[in-house]
Design a protein around this nucleic acid. Structure first.
Lengths: 159, 159
DNA sequence: GCCAGATAGGTGTAGGGTACACATACCCAA
DNA sequence: TTGGGTATGTGTACCCTACACCTATCTGGC
């Protein structure tokens, strides 16, 4: 297998696993959590969020989904918005955090902190397996050989 | 609000947010990833996994979902199973990793390592907000006051 | 014997978040 | 006036998750 399918699409040889989704192994509802954080840092509008949010791991955000999430969050009372008519370009809807949104940001941060700890545990155990001499694993971390690069959970796993 | 609803159920006062789901902010497909890790450590059967997997953050796993995931993973060729008739108790289906399953474990570990880094970044930025004197946040991390403990993303956020 | 309970594995299904395609409108420069 | 960047949205299918429910085996107590 392997051959040469570096094209972000799944290799034809792979039977079923279509886990090359953009969000790979990011937390559930991470979009919501990220939006709360960014809006909590400073009031922003959607298009700005669309560009900033890549820095939190959401590289290929669906713009529509982001705007939809914002409207839903406003409906839930987590954020509030106001139109801002700039001299250049279309009007922009600027969001700010509500009190309840702030509470939820705290809650989310707590949950993500716990997730962070569990991931540390997961990765430690994984490293133990890989380093283990009596590796149960069929083939341990081949430096740069057979591992099919087209079936990644996320599009790319840099660094 | 707040009052006294420490009962793992959502407080009645909360308008919409039903984010008190068991899996809170754990990664997407974390069940699959965890099963791969555990089976990679040593061959096990489903019921055993059901008990072990809590150690990875999945405290309230749905047993049916776990068994279903195992069957699907076997259908995908990630694991292989064999019946084991013990002297005491019902027969158990023991799973082991296939070569392809091992490759996917590596892939998942890479994705989760990246997620781990992004969560570090998220939490750093959150701490910056909380510590910030000119906090944009309506109310910063009340030590143990108003924060409603019944609307947690995960059931409990210990330690 | 019989029944409760632990062990062990499984199905049905509704809900919700995500991904992808597509639509709309404003403003500016060529 | 046409294209492209800015800015905001809708429609919808898919798939994971959560919850309820079911079957079967074996052991121990009454």
């Amino acid at each position: 297998m392997a051959s040469k399918a570096t094209s972000s699409r799944a290799a034809p040889g792979v039977p079923k696993p279509k886990r090359e989704e953009p969000q790979g192994g990011l937390p559930r509802n991470y979009l919501r959590a990220s939006l709360l954080l960014l809006i909590g840092e400073a009031p922003v509008h959607g298009y700005d969020l669309l560009e900033q949010i890549a820095g939190l791991g959401l590289h290929t955000v669906d713009a529509g989904g982001l705007y939809r999430a914002l409207r839903v969050m406003e409906g839930d009372g987590l954020v509030a918005s106001a139109w801002e008519h700039s001299a250049s370009g279309p009007a922009r809807r600027t969001y700010r955090l509500t009190v309840e949104g702030g509470e939820w940001l705290h809650v989310w941060a707590g949950a993500l902190r716990e997730t962070h700890r569990y991931l540390s545990s997961y990765l430690d155990r994984y490293d133990d397996i890989v380093r283990s001499p009596d590796a149960v694993l069929p083939n341990a971390e081949l430096p740069d050989a057979e591992l099919p690069d087209a079936m990644l959970p996320r599009a790319e796993v840099p660094k």
